Amino acid sequence: MHINFPLLLVIAVAVTGLLALLDYLWLAPRRRRAMAAYEAQVTTVDPVTLGRLNKEPLLVEYGKSFFPVLAVVLVLRSFLVEPFQIPSGSMKPTLEIGDFILVNKFSYGIRLPVLETKIIPVDDPQRGDVMVFRYPNDPRINYIKRVVGLPGDHIRYADKRLFVNGEPVERELLHTVEDDEVPVGHPLQAMAKVDLYQEQLGETAHQARYKRLSQTPPEREWTVPEGHYFMVGDNRDNSNDSRYWSSPDMPRELWGMVPDNYIVGKAFAVWMHWPEPKLSNLPSFSRVGLIN
């Protein structure tokens, strides 16, 4: 079950705001009139009675207390910065499972909360950006991948290499490491290796990993439609992304490219690493830094 947190937040702000407005327009003036009438009737004012007459209803008190906090959270989360946790290894080595990241909601334009309608354009995604978006097959789920193809681009994936508009993506082999995604004790564990490459996508230099033992997929190519983006995970052999789609007749889990109205924002920093949030396993801050 996926909870629609933005909708709940908007409802909470609306309810607490209405309570605060109700108190300001009607309840507070009524309390002041009651206090004035009481003071006019007695020669000695009883502070206890006066306090009782001025006491806010409990629901109104809570509403007025929570409204400014919730309103600030709504503005920050909807228009500026939103935190996310990385649940999978599809962006390794750039992002690890358990990384807590910050996403800039302003980079690609200001959108209305819940409706996700862009009201103020700011900039468009650039090739190489790490972008959070709503999963096209289930918009309640957020995905994170790297922007490889922009509207109008021709993308080809052949022999485990990316080509953009006919040119291979520049890459340099950094080193080879053991594949930590192979279970301990697996017969192929000793032979399972991963090549780590430094790749250059647009202005962004980043690392990508390729499994040596994984099957080489058949050559595929795509043209990115207008208003869409071609997204690929940095963990190239373990990422469900735009490469695994060709037509609407393909299986549902093969979701294709990301339309502009599904964009959430640009991931720009890791602020904490906590793969298992519990008291016996405290968070680490060793991975804190900007995202390339």
Results as ranks from 00 to 15, higher is better:
V184L: 13
G166H: 12
Y197E: 00
T176Q: 05
H175N: 12
D195A: 09
I144H: 12
V148C: 03
H175D: 14
L173Y: 01
D138V: 06
Y143S: 11
D138I: 06
D179T: 06
G166P: 14
R146A: 02
R161G: 01
I141N: 10
L174W: 02
R171Y: 00
P139T: 15
G149S: 09
T176L: 02
I141F: 08
M191V: 08
G185K: 11
R161V: 01
H186T: 06
K145H: 05
Y157H: 09
A190H: 04
I155S: 03
P187H: 07
P187E: 11
T176S: 09
V164A: 04
I144R: 12
V169L: 00
L174D: 07
D153L: 05
I155V: 12
K160Q: 08
E178V: 13
V148W: 05
V148I: 14
Y157Q: 05
Y143F: 15
N137P: 13
A192N: 05
R161T: 04
P187V: 06
I155A: 04
G185Y: 08
V164C: 06
K160G: 05
P183S: 11
V184P: 08
E178R: 13
P139D: 14
D159F: 01
P136C: 09
E178M: 13
P183L: 08
L188R: 15
A158E: 14
G166C: 11
P151M: 09
A190N: 10
P168N: 02
F163Y: 15
R146E: 03
P183N: 09
E170Y: 01
V194A: 09
K160N: 12
E199T: 00
R171F: 00
G166F: 11
V148A: 03
G152C: 09
D138F: 06
